[in-house]
Design a protein around this nucleic acid. Structure first.
Lengths: 183, 183
DNA sequence: CTCCCTTTGTAGCGCTTGCTACATGTATAC
DNA sequence: GTATACATGTAGCAAGCGCTACAAAGGGAG
């Protein structure tokens, strides 16, 4: 029993790296198995089915994102909206999370078309992000903080979207304008 | 020659309606043909291949979006960032463009994984939107206007993303916060 | 050693995919 | 009226999909 679990988590790690590198383009069982360095037969021995593979991998990535966010900023540190935008975009645009953000956008789109298991994964990441932003906003009123957090998250996600279609420079401009206007 | 073109555009209209209704989930040639009320054989008679069908349909939808935007606001009307956010989100969240925005997000995600023809379509819509925002911003300095436009566009797109993963209410909150903070 | 359960390879099933070969009808040009 | 190009249905191909049946190898328990 132990061996199966060990092999399973080894495969999972490689699948996660594969997803972060290539996005959701190559998600056939044979392709995922090849990325994990095993046969498709074994991949489906370690996991129930393809959905189980993807859900496990993406859930792990989602947990890593939350971890990255929480370790990047002390839990009790509060800041103004403009500073939070600066901090968050520095993270999402940096090496630590660039690939994750791109994958996240693909998950949201897949969620939009109702594909399992992307809907729950997308919601999970979005919710984690939202909690993180809310927790670091230096705003007293809960409702105001909640709506401001929603706006900041929209901004961060929108910048990721913008950079996919145009270029990184345009994203940087959006960040600058946001910081300028929110002060 | 004329008949083929007529049939082609009839099919195109129905394919567009299908895409707006169901997103990019059902984009097999047989499914697109069924949506158009013809056989897959005929769909591929009217169009070169599947890519041609999708590119034509999405390009048309993109043109409609630009049209909707330009007719909604007089060409020479300028406004402050907060008003533009209000105006734009009223459009994108309304019946006129809600389906288009959702489809647009799916196109961007498909573009992220390098699928043809989504890359060019996503760029096309994003660029059209960007020009529209820029044209209605009441800002003298061109660079400042450009970066502010990028930020507003990111905000609008991000709100669309947010609404896919959470709910419409959260999007409304983001809009309110943006209008409040940008004033 | 024998038995049994875990692990792994080979092969292939039924289905969907994008696309096409072929034949037949149908309208138009001369 | 015949020839020619257009239009459309039937059938099917090769490739890929998710998944599984079957058999064999491996290792621990008695």
């Amino acid at each position: 029993m132990a061996k199966k679990d060990v092999q399973r988590s080894k495969a999972l790690e490689k699948v996660q790296a594969h997803l972060l590198e290539t996005g959701l383009a190559q998600t056939g069982v044979r392709q995922l198995a090849a990325a994990a360095g095993i046969s498709d037969r074994m991949l489906l021995y370690y996991f129930d089915d393809k959905t189980d593979v993807l859900a496990s991998a993406l859930s792990g990535i989602s947990a890593n994102v939350v971890m990255t966010l929480s370790t990047a900023v002390p839990a009790d540190q509060k800041m103004a909206a403009s500073d939070l935008v600066r901090t968050a975009t520095a993270l999402t645009k940096g090496d630590a999370m660039r690939a994750e953000m791109r994958l996240f956008v693909e998950c949201v789109a897949a969620a939009a078309r109702g594909e399992v298991p992307y809907e729950s994964v997308a919601k999970q990441i979005m919710e984690g992000f939202l909690v993180w932003v809310d927790a670091h906003l230096d705003i007293e009123d809960a409702d105001e903080r909640k709506s401001t957090a929603a706006m900041i998250l929209a901004l961060i996600d929108g910048i990721a979207l913008l950079e996919i279609c145009t270029d990184e420079q345009r994203g940087d401009m959006a960040v600058d304008a946001a910081i300028r206007l929110l002060q």
